[in-house]
Design a protein around this nucleic acid. Sequence first.
DNA 1: AGAGGGATCCCA
DNA 2: GGGATCCCTCTC
Length: 169
Amino acid sequence: MRADGEGLLCARIVETEAYLPDDAASHAFRGRTSRNTTMFGPPGFAYVYFIYGVYYCLNVTSEVEGIGGAVLVRAAEPLAGLDVMRARRAGARELCTGPGRLAQAFGLGREHDGLDLCCGGTLRLEAPYEPAGDIASSTRIGITKETDRTLRFFERGSAHLSGPRSLNR
DNA sequence: AGAGGGATCCCA
DNA sequence: GGGATCCCTCTC
């Protein structure tokens, strides 16, 4: 993923979670509301929401228009613009490990909700700088419903994964 | 392990 | 309107 603005920011996504239609853990589960409207739009758009009064989280819509679904971007390996990320993260060591931190490092907020990530805009998804390694799956983090579904996906061995180590094998 | 923080949503 | 809940993080 890349972002323009305060210099060029670039990071390689290493951890995601899927939120499917008919998934009680998904914001879209109870239907369309003003908050989750983007989830019901076309695929490849940013769904950004505010959580716990503090953080934002970035998702990529993943279903055809009219169906609510998205992929939460949980962690990434920073590749460019580390100085800007560090400044935004107040010098913390982990820059893009965890959805709240990643959004903070990239300076994401409500204004990014609904942006097209696939048409070369200021925030965009691109082909990976380096091919993916071994992809493994686990249960999802931070949810209380549908906790048995293995819909979290991560690059095994990455040094930039969030979550308990026991999930990252 | 516990607090912080505020928007959102559901049910009165 | 009130109250529970929340796809989290930091500091203790």
